[in-house]
Amino acid sequence: MKDEELQQLCREIRADIVRMIGRVKSGHPGGSLSCAEILATLYFREMSANPATPPGQRDKCVLCKGHAAPALYAVLARRGYFPREELETLRRLGSRLQGHPDMKKTPGVDASTGSLGQGCSIAVGMALGARLKGSAQRIFAVVGDGEMQEGQFWEAMMSAAHFGLTNLTVILDHNGLQIDGANDDVMNLGDIRAKLLAFGFDVIEVDGHDTIQLLDAYARKTDKPKFILAETVKGKGVSFMENQAGWHGKAPSADETEQALAELEA
């Protein structure tokens, strides 16, 4: 997929996200909209993620910030893991599309996540497993910034460096906001770059909405586990949601959904 197509795809993914959450009147639009480019570049360009490839041979992505499930579902549907019409069933009783990713229910979901801080540990285990089996499989973990307040996140980072997991890439969707407000106000994360460097990662800073920068960062060869610090905007693409913590876990009304779709589809 070409760069321009990828950018168009991200607009469509954002529209899917707004439509899905608006319809069920429940979900997390802010952090779903902020990681559209990250997930789209992974699934459409970087990862070996063809649904026709046996799961054991595909690259894997752990969406540690599982509340951004709508973004992942939109990407997976467009990648061909399940029909796009199924997106309408998000969060409904009996749906394969749970509020948070469920690997047992949803085709293409590589790990069940949503309880913050746990995903990176799972990704470390997958990376260890791939290496042990001599597989070329690569493991990607997409984390949120608020999630880094969990102690387990740092346990996982320590172990990734300790085991020298060069097949692991952690991507931070750094939108700077969490439910109760700005990271800096709720619990300041300090110098994230310096912390990850000190933990033994190679750190690459990018504009998380610039697909070319993301792809360049993925391609960079490192001899350590890789941490991509992607600067993003919470609620990206919907004017009234951008940089508003209030849109972390609030669904748009019917009017707001219409307005958001008008902006995204303009």
Binding site: K60, M103, D110, A111, G117, Q118, G119, C120, S121, I122, A123, V124, G125, M126, A127, L128, G129, A130, L132, K133, G151, Q152, E155, A156, M158, S159
Partner: peptide, 13 residues
């Protein structure tokens, strides 16, 4: 806590 997650990841592998 990390150990439990790593065990999960190894099982997924």
């Amino acid at each position: 806590q990390n150990m439990m997650g790593v065990a999960a990841g190894l099982a997924i592998s």
